[in-house]
Amino acid sequence: MAMYNDKVIDHFMNPHNVGEIEDASGIGTFGSPVCGDMMQMSIKVDDNGIITDAKFKTYGCGSAIASSSIATDMIIGKTCEEALKVTNDDVLRELGGLPSVKVHCSILSEQSIKAAIYDYAQKNGLEFEGLKDFDPNAEDHDESCELSDDEL
């Protein structure tokens, strides 16, 4: 496990917020098992638009699980707009970094946050600035799982 720092190891060995919220305000998934990782994120949003709970389920490698865990920690207590600003880089920073070959594994969490909030927005007729470029079916177009050069 020498390639991972202690915080990453702690988050995949003892992930926070594992599960599925039963009466979720929004639920979204991103990725596919064919590509080696798929995350499901469910959120509970209160009347003030604040995310009061977030839970995840992730099929994927250690980095994907650690990123999912920390991403749920990061969005609890934030408004949807604030949560939509959480990027892959923020997740990486919060984790204290991942080995370069694993950086792509953290993209999953950023996209899953968006997918869950998108579902919440759809169900409640809301629009969020942070979702204007979000394509909920993006992963369906990526059958090849190939990463672009700059991701690698």
Partner: peptide, 14 residues
């Protein structure tokens, strides 16, 4: 089934 190999290896290593 339903689990990813690298995660298994890390848990095994632990």
């Amino acid at each position: 089934e339903y689990v990813e190999g690298e995660a298994i290896l890390l848990y095994l290593d632990f």
